[in-house]
Write a protein that binds this DNA or RNA. Sequence first.
DNA 1: ATGAAAGCGCTAACAG
DNA 2: CTGTTAGCGCTTTCAT
Lengths: 331, 331
Amino acid sequence: MSVTILDVAKVAGVSKATVSRAFTNPEKVKPQTLQKILEVAKELNYSPNAIARAMKTNRTGNIGFIVYAEQKPIISNPFYALVLEAVIETANKIGYSLFISTDQDITLPTGEIMLQKKVDGVILASQIDSKTVLTFRKNKVPVVLLNNYMDLDGLHCVINDEYYGAHQVVEHLVRRGHKRIGILSGRYNPFICNHRYNAYVDVLKENGIELNYDYVHSVEPNFQDVYAAVKNLLIQKQRPTALFCNSDMIAIYAMKALIREGVKIPDDIAVAGFDDNYYCTVVEPELTSVHVDREMMGTAAVNILHKLMCGEEVEEKTVITKPKLIIRGST
Amino acid sequence: MSVTILDVAKVAGVSKATVSRAFTNPEKVKPQTLQKILEVAKELNYSPNAIARAMKTNRTGNIGFIVYAEQKPIISNPFYALVLEAVIETANKIGYSLFISTDQDITLPTGEIMLQKKVDGVILASQIDSKTVLTFRKNKVPVVLLNNYMDLDGLHCVINDEYYGAHQVVEHLVRRGHKRIGILSGRYNPFICNHRYNAYVDVLKENGIELNYDYVHSVEPNFQDVYAAVKNLLIQKQRPTALFCNSDMIAIYAMKALIREGVKIPDDIAVAGFDDNYYCTVVEPELTSVHVDREMMGTAAVNILHKLMCGEEVEEKTVITKPKLIIRGST
DNA sequence: ATGAAAGCGCTAACAG
DNA sequence: CTGTTAGCGCTTTCAT
């Protein structure tokens, strides 16, 4: 049997109510009594039972981080890893613990959303559907969307300015004198990919460069697919001299492909990525990329959620982080 | 107010005990009644309150994953990311959720270990000290050590056969005809580093190659440090022709350094790493490494913990995973 | 400033 | 097979 509030009360010669106060509202108990209680508690190695407390207060001190299952692996996903790192740290700092799961984990075979574990709030990352959002709302669980936008009344979202980031990097390529710029676009989150692609198209237009569809490839983020796309680019009469890849992973694979084909980076072809993963500095030459402030995204999401969980109104519905172009040896 | 077991009981025309049974021991209730209850529950959108349940059963359905704080970043640590991935998945499969924190997070300024959040069991990863282990034990919380060994009565550990792995890879280098083999050793977890280093020394001895301390470098896992060590190796009259790096990260940095110095890999110098991170296939040439089965380690830890939490005895105290040499282009 | 008492939502004997 | 009942450990009025 573990030691309860009653044991402490007995030994300290007070009622359990007073012990309870000593731990929740220390200022409401006479300093003398307080000290005594704390002493006894330490002596008995007592610490309040979080579950019983949760039961009374109806707050668990837990928040859920739910990722779109297609994004798996979550933890070793170089994008969400950094977000998670910040989320965990920020959550811990304000006294919350984090549950990580996928939308699949919380969906029953029947399609119902299961809130099996009690959480005081949730962060929904990536393309979680609106049904999930609605279910949480119905259960009065505050929600913050991360890296996703949904036009739902009063919904809080934390997103990155994809268009701006892509605009920056493509413009950088143009400024370096490139006129034949290829793009390898991923096929994931359309919300993100479209913004990045649109920026590419716009920059070309702004600079009077005609869009050449031979230079536009949509690829899966695996080496085979990227290699095939790169080969296709290389056999064209007018090879592109620069390559904007929609994600670092694609860029890395493109670099591998180019190196194998004996193409010099950046002299023959410059390569740029997006996200600024840790891969960027692992490869040689190091990869120019657009740094997405995942730390800020994670922190912002937790902070908004925190206010929401405390019952505060949060005016600013959408937080948009500004990415930053990082120029390295590949361009 | 959320809907409780009592609401369901009333509408279904049974007692709350029966409703409770319907959810915990469905076979103990008449099929007819069961169906009725389930219907009503769905209709009322009822789901059992996990906290109240935890309070009664004294089991939370949570397990803690605690990492040595020096290992930070945890999530984006390419070693623990994969362990965690497996741990989360396995835990979810058996109905548990995971809390992630560092030993620092659970240690009060006074040095006391705080079990703030109730967990049914913990996995302690990396160099957690024995005091932490003892604290959990004292509180009857089952413990499993991961990637760490401690000679504590009846303590369960999951470790990797570091010596075997290092032996494999160095032997591979010898078989490829290398006689001058350098080593870049990390300065982290001595339990691990020593095993790897010892294997290196032994393989040389087994093959009649004299240990040359000019080829032995201890480095921090950052580019500057590794670059300096590599330069030092390159200026020796008798350059090593192969390099065994104690971790992939070090190997990657060594490769970058060699490429910058115009050294051809593997023709001039072969490079091998350890762990088989995802970095290995990102670089060109791809890195020969020793695959540590982190998935297995994570799964094993959870499975042992699961049995322990169910009150079962687990005979096998130490699970040792066998790593596997993966030969790639760098050797 | 402190105590008495009610009850959070659920489970697990024990009866029937 | 089902109902009754007694708490799990804590917080929180309401009194004192």
